[in-house]
Simulated scan of single mutants.
Amino acid sequence: MRRVRAALALLRTVLVCAALLLLASCGWGGTGGDGDGHAPGAPAGVTAAAGSATSVHVMWDAVTASPSIRTYEVYRGTTKVKEVSASEHMVDVIRLRPATMYSFTVRARDTDGRLGPPSREVRARTPVAVADDHSAPTRPRTPQGRVIGSRAVQLSWGGSKDDRGVVSYDIYQGGAKIHSVGGAQTATVVTGLRPSTRYSFTVRARDAADNLSPASTAVPLTTAPGSDDGRGTAPTDFRATTHRGKDGAYYIDLSWVPPRTDGVVTEYQVQLDGQPATSLVWGGTAPRDHATYSFYTGREAGVGHRVRLRARLPDGTWGGFSAERTVTTGETTP
């Protein structure tokens, strides 16, 4: 009789566990979403730069996830200081202390409410406050712009003057501030725009006391149609060679200059013979001026390959492909 009761108890346990597994697989009683139970990844390309003696501008690359991202949360140390929608990937953290070092991280939350891990920590020091500074910088001079695709434009301007020094420049699209760069920078690339759309950009200078200059003259630009090849956002100076490794296998060696963007490009896609071959994701500090990568292609000599690559831009979209190069294993590439 004891054996019968034990068997019945075991059967009940098995049935309960099976029911719980069925509920979980259907997405009932759990965290919801697509059923994979995975939170979004940590934002990459996070940077921080002082905007004034009391503010810091924080930027990051858009996170691509399924389900999609709903919001980003920005933390100063362990304190959440900002929450913005998924369409934004930059914020100004204000009401800070002058001459102080701050650390920031960013986390993504998806449409199912799952909060991803924090990004790598970045730091920025606010400059010393200047007492009784009521003089704003001069207006940025002779702003210019050019369209570099259906979703990006490049802006440049002449530097402003200030009796205490310019700390940052703010870029406006219409009446909305969309970005900020350091006071030593007089050019920027704006991505995440819509194809065949007319925009108007202005620039304003800011000093350490938060005095804001008058707006520059407007730069009207119309992005290219959506069918363009994105050449303006493609990696440049792309080169490909081959070598034979110590293991006797052949490898393709790539080098390129990353596309110029305001954020940090942390991900690339390599296309081999017309098909995606591999993705590169920098987990640490991504290269800004020159990048290299090598990958395995087999053990047979005399095999020709076509190779090119493209970058995922900070707004989460793919940029244009680089020029395509042809290499042959076992041959010296000029």
Rank of each mutant, 00 (worst) to 15 (best):
N211S: 03
V307F: 00
G284K: 09
G113L: 10
A136N: 04
V91S: 07
G27I: 12
S160P: 07
A291D: 08
D273I: 04
A208H: 04
G320I: 04
D162G: 01
S196V: 09
A124M: 05
H243I: 13
A65P: 00
S255M: 03
H38R: 15
G175L: 14
S213V: 07
D262F: 11
G263I: 04
R109P: 03
A249T: 08
S103R: 12
D36A: 04
T105R: 12
T233Q: 04
D253V: 10
Y102E: 06
A277T: 10
S255P: 00
G263H: 05
S180C: 13
S85C: 00
T333F: 09
L313Y: 13
S103M: 12
P117N: 10
R312V: 08
T285H: 14
T266M: 01
S213R: 04
H290D: 14
W28C: 05
F295C: 06
Y102N: 08
G158N: 01
A129P: 06
A209S: 10
P276V: 00
Q185C: 09
G304L: 00
Q271N: 13
D207R: 03
G116R: 04
V167R: 10
A53E: 09
T233C: 03
T78L: 05
V167W: 05
D163K: 11
K82H: 10
R288F: 05
E73S: 15
G230R: 06
D273N: 13
R299Y: 14
A6M: 11
R70Q: 13
Y199F: 02
R198T: 15
R139S: 15
T328Y: 14
V58W: 08
V130K: 06
D133L: 03
I148W: 06
P67M: 02
D110I: 04
A152S: 12
R299M: 11
T13D: 11
I69C: 12
G182P: 06
V91H: 08
D133M: 04
G319E: 02
D247F: 13
A6G: 02
G149L: 09
P276C: 01
S216A: 05
L11V: 09
L20A: 11
V81S: 01
S196C: 13
R139N: 15
Q271G: 03
W157D: 03
V153A: 06
D207T: 07
Y169F: 12
G30T: 15
D315V: 07
S279I: 13
